[in-house]
Design a protein around this nucleic acid. Structure first.
Length: 493
RNA sequence: GCCCCCAUCGUCUAGAGGACCAGGACGCGGCCCUUUCAAGGCUGAAGCAGGAGUUCGAAUCUCCUUGGGGGCACCA
């Protein structure tokens, strides 16, 4: 089976609203979307909300917003509609019931009223005996009718033979039917399980290619058998590798929220990436590079550039981890190379405001070029230039003013001299400042770095900052003098 | 335990029998530039999991071992 088939390409991303959009899910969505784009196909969003127990009310909203943020748009789905709706499984229950009955009538499925307790006992017994745990076919040939009270519907899996699964990425995977289970198709609450709903929806939505995570491989033969029972043509299928936790221990999707591992902050939800100050373009570029490679030794590229090269077959079947350090670097690349000063300023303003600062647009605009090449994440802006938007600045410890190989008296002398020099400076441009201060350092027998460091601490209360004289120029002479004076007073007290 | 998938630097990867004493990127080290921090330039360390085959020749093909992952639900 090949990636291209006779049918128009129609693919779907089918998340379950049991939590916010996971970065692993986003990658599956991204690859699916890229595939659709490449083939001028249709990308469909389908909400698989058949699990009432794990349902999270605002999950669907988060999933949609997160996809939007990443730039992934769907042509059919809840809200936007389409010819194959509805696109929420909870709104398609009649369909599932109808086809479940069809399977029973035709001998491909059966009703089962075994209790949870009995099932557990059976499984425990099997485990004890070292057998494979699974349903023991108790109701398989009982021919139970609909009048038996609460019950489930199970698929009648062939007892022998084998079922091949043609995976686009891995080739043919063959399963022995004797090892497969009579899995539940309809739950006792009247809602279908994934297995049934997925097959029916993919069929009636004319899905041409199924893309989904690795973890579905084990139940893929069941799906193959269900298609066979219905007599429907099965879409091509590709199982995408899962993303592992940075430690490599287990899949990342076991975690549903950011956590810390060693000294890396491991982000998990898409919204966490946004909140951490990453640009959507950088995240998309980053994600595309895990499990797939652009080629030509290129690391930075747009989705437009990806399309001509993208093929599902080229996806690396091995599970991988997200190289978070690389995302930091990549985000920095996007900030300094892909954004204009105005665009970056627009991103930065709300972040500064959220930090409680009052932002002067002119000041921000003038400062952006100074920090553009220093930011790795948007959020770092606060620590870089927060001092520009505060009336005063507070040194936690006066000792910070004292530079290497200097003492309190020398520092005091230097600050006072700098103050006087600044006070008499008519031209406060950074060139003029630098010239004056270099001369002063020379005169006092200080290294430029020592004098500049002291002034930097006095004005920014930071050990590192954007180029000192340039931010001084933006801050203005009066404010600078005021802060130097305060620093002198602090050191003297 | 059973079934299935996978295996190139620490990490993400290029590599589809000779072009590979294995290339790139991040990270890490060094040097240069430099008012701090970045950015930039140059440079260094670092890998084909192991073992058998096949072949004139293997990172690339086969098998075994090992390791990792996934699954074994009235969850998706």
């Amino acid at each position: 089976m090949s990636e291209t088939s006779a049918h128009p390409v129609r693919v779907r991303f089918a998340p379950s609203p049991t939590g916010y959009l996971h970065i692993g899910g986003a990658r599956t969505a991204l690859f699916t979307w890229l595939f659709a784009q490449k083939h001028n196909g249709t990308f469909i969003l389908r909400i698989e909300d058949t699990d009432q127990k794990r349902y999270v009310p605002d999950a669907e909203e988060d999933i949609k917003q997160s996809l939007q943020w990443l730039g992934i748009r769907w042509q059919e789905g809840p809200d936007v509609g389409g010819d194959y709706g509805p696109y929420r499984q909870s709104e398609r229950t009649d369909l599932y019931l109808e086809w479940s009955d069809w399977l029973i009538e035709h001998g491909y499925a059966y009703r089962c009223n075994c209790s949870a307790e009995r099932l557990n006992e059976v499984r425990e017994e099997q485990r004890k005996k070292g057998e494979q745990p699974g349903y023991d076919h108790h109701c398989r040939d009982l021919g139970l009718g609909a009048n038996i009270g609460p019950h489930v519907v199970r698929f009648k899996m062939p007892l022998d033979g084998e079922t091949p699964v043609e995976d686009l990425i891995r080739g043919t995977i063959t399963f022995q039917n004797s090892e497969l289970q009579d899995l539940v198709l309809m739950k006792s609450d009247g809602l279908p399980t994934y297995h049934l709903a997925n097959v029916i929806d993919d069929h009636f939505m004319a899905i041409s290619h199924i893309t989904r995570a690795d973890e579905w491989i084990a139940t893929a033969p069941l799906h193959v058998q269900i298609y066979r029972a219905f007599g429907w043509e099965m879409p091509a299928i590709a199982h995408l590798p899962v993303i592992l936790s940075p430690s490599g221990k287990g899949k990342l999707s076991k975690r549903d929220q950011a956590f810390t591992e060693g000294d890396t902050q491991v982000l998990v939800q898409v919204r966490e990436f946004r909140e951490a100050g990453y640009l959507p373009e950088a995240v998309v570029n980053f994600l595309t590079n895990v499990g797939w490679a652009f080629g030509d030794d290129r690391e930075v590229f747009s989705t437009e550039e990806v399309l001509p090269r993208f093929r599902l077959e080229d996806i690396n079947p091995a599970p991988g981890r997200l190289p978070y350090e690389k995302l930091e670097w990549l985000n920095g690349v996007y900030i300094r190379e892909k954004l204009s000063v105005d665009e970056l300023a627009a991103y930065l303003k709300p972040i500064l405001e959220d930090a409680g600062l009052t932002v002067d647009d002119d000041v921000l605009r003038q400062t952006v070029p100074l920090i553009k090449e220093r930011l790795k994440t948007l959020n770092e802006v606060v620590e870089w230039i927060g001092f520009l938007f505060r009336d005063d600045v507070h040194l936690e410890d006066p000792q910070q003013l004292i530079q290497k190989k200097m003492d309190k008296d020398g520092t005091l002398k230097a600050l006072k001299a700098a103050y006087d020099l600044y006070a008499g400076l008519d031209d406060f441009s950074h060139e003029s400042q630098e010239q004056a201060m270099r001369a002063l350092a020379d005169e006092m027998g200080l290294k430029a770095g020592q004098l500049f460091g002291t002034i930097r601490e006095a004005i920014t209360a930071q050990r590192v900052s954007p180029p000192l004289f340039e931010t001084n120029e933006i801050l203005g002479k009066d404010a600078c003098l005021k802060r130097i004076k305060a620093a002198i007073a602090l050191l003297e007290s």
